[in-house]
């Protein structure tokens, strides 16, 4: 049985803040941050946006591209995020209710640092493949946290992408998957803490690069494919530099990675990052194209997927807002004070 994507959709908030504006407040050198991180600005959620609101909009966009799937036929909905609005109360129930998929649906919220979105995709497609459900949705969404003045503050961004999986009317088939996991303590947030901590440079070589390379080489070996067989590749994007560097180490070219490389102006959308990159690739893909996607989540693990785009892609690309359009169309730039209010970094009277 062929299993794959029946509908896809992303959602990006309209607000942005530039690296210069953050650096100005903390007395940091903006050009060196821009060069070091390879990014210029990042998205910021408004006060009335969170993982749930962005997931609803991304899921609605996925349904708009589904060719009329009845939401009541969706048997599972999984949201991966490290910024679920509630500590106890699922995000997924609200999203399922909003898209009209309740009550005959299995729902769970996943957490695995930046990999939680691809986990949701992995499990949803697996249940379709097992024949337990007709359709399943996997969503990656985050309004990620970065401590004021920390290097993470320059990149921690917001966005969501949703993928509806099924076994007929596919716009992209899933050919192979592979996951690569180990206990690698490079980034964490303890309960009740507002901001995560990270192990600095250690988040690179033994963490991001090892797992991304492990999962990509694993899926290439399983599929018997080589980098030059792909039209597109997208990797997790904690900053502007890492995805391009790991891609080149693996043998992918700049041209293969450009369509899904959003972090220079979007920032790091954590659980949303590689899924939103995949949505931007699907916006421009042609029938027959091969796509490689590989996520990375600290702690650590990577999920890789090989997709083949079908003829149906050209019918659905225009049925919902395209990801690059949402990234580039009339962004609203914030000063640091407004940003601090939006991100609730200001302590107020009780």
């Amino acid at each position: 049985m062929n299993v794959g994507i029946v509908g896809y959709g992303a959602y990006l908030p309209k607000h942005r803040i530039k690296v210069e504006e953050i650096a100005r407040v903390w007395g940091a050198d903006a050009p060196s941050y821009k060069k070091g991180l390879g990014l210029r600005e990042k998205s910021v959620p408004a006060l009335d946006q969170d993982v749930i609101t962005m997931s609803v909009e991304a899921a609605r966009n996925a349904l708009a591209r589904s060719g009329g799937v009845d939401p009541r036929e969706i048997g599972a909905l999984y949201i991966g995020s490290e910024s679920h609005p509630y500590a106890v109360k699922p995000s997924g129930t609200i999203v399922s209710e909003a898209i009209g998929a309740t009550p005959a649906i299995h729902v769970a919220d996943f957490e695995f640092a930046c990999k939680a979105g691809s986990e949701g995709m992995f499990v949803a497609h697996g249940l379709v493949k097992a024949g337990l459900i007709k359709y399943g949705i996997g969503i990656g969404a985050d309004t990620s946290q970065g401590a004021p003045g920390d290097a993470l503050e320059y990149s921690a961004a917001a966005g969501a992408a949703a993928f509806l999986f099924g076994s007929d009317n596919l716009l992209a088939r899933i050919e192979h998957t592979f996951s690569y996991t180990s206990d690698t303590p490079d980034f964490w947030r303890r309960e009740y803490m507002h901001y995560p901590q990270h192990a600095g440079r250690y988040t690179g070589e033994p963490a991001y690069f090892k797992h991304t390379i492990g999962a990509t080489e694993g899926v290439l070996e399983r599929s018997g494919m080589k980098p030059s067989d792909f039209q597109f590749a997208v990797f997790h994007q904690p900053n502007g530099k890492f995805p391009m560097r790991v891609g080149k180490m693996l043998g992918f070219s700049h041209e293969q990675m450009e369509a899904g490389w959003l972090s220079p102006t979007l920032g790091n959308t954590y659980s949303g990052a590689s899924p939103i990159g995949l949505s931007a690739i699907l916006d421009v893909a042609k029938p027959g194209d091969k796509i490689l996607m590989c996520s990375y989540g600290s702690g650590s693990g990577s999920d890789s997927f090989v997709f083949t785009v079908t003829e149906r892609i050209t019918e659905v690309q225009g049925l919902a807002p395209k990801t690059r359009y949402m990234l580039e169309h009339e962004p609203i730039y914030l000063a640091y004070g407004e940003y601090a209010k939006f991100r609730r970094k200001i302590r107020k009277a009780e």
Partner: peptide
């Protein structure tokens, strides 16, 4: 219409969602 938070019942209370 987009799905948005309308208001929160304080820091610890329920979050009310709706449309804007």
């Amino acid at each position: 219409l987009e799905f948005r938070k309308i208001y929160e019942e304080g820091e610890a209370g329920i979050i009310n969602y709706g449309y804007k």
